[in-house]
Design a protein around this nucleic acid. Structure first.
Length: 597
DNA sequence: GCAATAAGCGCG
DNA sequence: AAAGCGCGCTTATTGC
């Protein structure tokens, strides 16, 4: 049964009227607890336009939902996917489900008082009829062609043999919705953060806090920099000023970036690099950050499911996906609890092996480090060569040591390298590419085609094109620009198929983990995690190929087993019986910094 | 005076 | 050593 969730009156939380035999409709008001709802019932699927909006309210009431359909996320996939391109949904004019995701509610912090007085116009939400119509359209788009058409297509043998394209698309939609539940739960629970440890770590590095003023260690370094450069009034935070003084002192640099500075021999380099390092820590994850984002011992960023074109999650608030290794010491489990930290080893090349059905590459990663396996197979001389070479292949690197090993990789793994190469060629032609489950890359913008056309035939009369028109008189320049642009888009599509499929694996992984954690039940003393997780292991962090579970110590080892088995299950969901492994590096720790990293 | 942009650096 | 892909965030600077 579906429970369709729509905005409701602020009275009477409990009654679900049966509009149709199959559909219950629940109206949830902002302040109304949905009494009598069994969220965990697997036979129920909650349907709503936006998981972040609705589920945060249910969780606030301690209600967990087992399954849902996030119509907005599914809509986005189905609109763009080549698999559903012929559907009514894909051809329709854009509507309410095409609106971007809404931002999570602002957190308490220095600017919260302002936000409280802001009159935020509530988003207009689709009503019951609109939701049900959308469900029907999505069902049709996911049903795919009839059995006869499918049989014919199967005969042509397009793509890996992992089931019909529409079945894969259904998996993607389901996984994305499950991911949305996990994202809401992670924000609800928060990443346990020890403010004292963080403060001590900052004081060790920067010296005692000086209010808003520059910390002592940075002030000392600033003085040394000024002395070395003979610039007593220099502000080391101003890049143009620093660059000017460096050049005035005869240093051959064109920027103040650390990699360029590192190659210069001058006594200012050491304090300047040290200053930049401390400055980064202070501005990005210093005391102000701590007060703003961890007011109560939990870090609650806003995860944006499919916030990245490739399907990866984005985040906003506090730089959740850029937590420096330096501060991870402050991520600590509650007393009597543990962090289970898991990281999928060499995820992207393994995904490519499965995607391209490259038997030799899959074999190289079987039961061992994939890069070491390439060394053992005699393909490359060192693990580092394998790694750099594969990254170059995935990103489209054309220079340096990466390009040097590319021919050897191409010879050893023709299917894998051919797959990304084909994706690159398609992108260079301006075509779309798809991931294993059917997520489809965006097409290049209108300006892209204009540049290509101009280079090919001297497109007439478009030199009114504004910002892009610079240099359009020069045919050679036009051609060079067109080629550079074409290759750039090819690098994007090359990476899209791998990064996007890896994101799909990760979605399946997290969905499996989430389900299995709940099944482990309760244990130990309550932590400071809110209901319904106070005595249950729960997800607290996710970073592309890595996740962290907060678990009662009695359950930590069981959690580790489930996390591993979930990775195996994710591989099966995507690649069926194809023998590609997804091993994890896994650690049960008190502090995030104690995981290998 | 405020908004958009660039540089730089953190993460995968 | 970075490069080649994808991001978010902060500061300084530029543009209106």
């Amino acid at each position: 049964m579906l429970i369709v969730v729509v905005p409701g009156a602020s009275s009477a939380g409990g009654d679900a009227d049966d509009a149709t035999p199959l559909v219950g409709v629940r109206r949830v008001g902002q302040d109304v607890a949905p009494h009598g709802v069994v969220g965990e019932d697997r036979s129920v699927r909650w349907v709503w336009d936006d998981t972040a909006h609705w589920y945060s309210r249910l969780l606030a009431d301690g209600v967990r939902v087992e399954r849902c359909l996030d119509l907005r996320l599914a809509h986005r996939v189905l609109r763009d996917s080549l698999t559903s391109a012929g559907s009514v949904l894909a051809r329709r004019a854009s509507g309410p489900f095409d609106a971007p995701a809404e931002q999570g509610d602002a957190l308490a912090g220095p600017d919260a008082p302002v936000a409280l007085f802001e009159v935020r116009a509530p988003r207009e939400r689709p009503d019951e009829a609109a939701l049900l119509a959308e469900v029907a359209d999505q069902d049709a788009a996911l049903a795919g062609p009839g059995p006869d058409v499918r049989a014919a297509a199967a005969g042509r043998g397009a793509g890996p043999d992992v089931g019909p394209a529409h079945a894969r698309l259904r998996l993607l939609v389901a996984a994305e919705s499950a991911g949305a539940l996990a994202a809401a739960e992670m924000r609800h629970a928060g990443l346990p953060w020890d403010r004292e440890v963080h403060d001590r770590l900052l004081t060790d590095a920067l010296g005692p806090r000086q209010g808003d003023a520059r910390p002592p260690r940075m002030e000392e370094l600033a003085a040394r920099i000024r002395a070395e450069l003979g610039a007593p009034r220099l502000n080391p935070d101003s890049m143009p000023d620093v660059l000017r003084e460096l050049r005035r002192n005869g240093l051959p640099v064109t920027s103040t970036s650390k990699w360029e500075l590192a190659g210069v021999d001058h006594p200012v380099v050491e304090p300047l690099l040290a200053y930049k390092k401390l400055s980064r820590l202070h501005t990005a994850n210093g005391w102000a950050w701590l007060d703003r984002w961890v007011p109560d011992g939990r870090f609650r960023p806003d995860y944006v499911v499919a916030g990245v074109v490739t399907g990866r999650w984005g985040s906003s608030g506090g730089g959740a996906q850029q937590l420096p290794k330096q501060v991870r010491r402050a991520v600590r489990a509650d007393d009597g609890w543990r962090l289970v930290v898991a990281d999928a080893a060499q995820l992207e090349p393994r995904v490519l092996a499965g995607l391209a059905r490259d038997d030799r590459m899959a074999e190289a990663g079987h039961g061992r480090d994939l890069y070491q396996g390439m060394v053992d197979a005699g393909v490359v001389a060192s693990r580092d060569q394998a790694k750099v070479g594969m990254l170059g292949a995935l990103y489209g690197g054309t220079t340096g040591s990466s390009a040097a090993v590319l021919p050897r990789l191409t010879r050893a793994f023709p299917a894998a390298l051919g797959h990304v190469e084909a994706a690159a060629r398609a992108g260079e032609r301006g075509e779309a590419v798809t991931t294993l489950l059917g997520r489809t890359s965006p097409r290049p913008g209108v300006g892209w085609a204009q540049v290509q056309a101009a280079a090919l035939g001297g497109a007439p009369g478009d030199d009114d094109a504004g910002p892009a028109a610079a240099g359009s008189a020069d045919p050679a320049g036009q051609e060079a620009r067109a080629r550079a642009q074409s290759r750039a888009w090819g690098r994007f599509t090359r990476n899209f198929v791998v990064q996007g499929t890896a994101a799909e694996w990760a979605l399946c992984w997290i969905a499996e983990v989430r389900r299995r954690l709940w099944a482990l039940g309760e244990a130990g003393e309550p932590s400071r995690a809110p209901a319904p997780f106070a005595r249950r292991p729960h997800l607290v962090y996710f970073l592309h190929d890595e996740l962290v579970v907060h678990a009662p110590e009695q359950l930590a080892d069981a959690v580790a087993v489930e996390v591993r088995e979930a990775a195996v299950a994710a591989g099966r969901l995507l690649f069926r019986d194809y023998p590609v492994d997804f091993p994890l590096s896994l650690a049960v720790v008190r502090s995030y910094a104690d995981a290998k990293g």
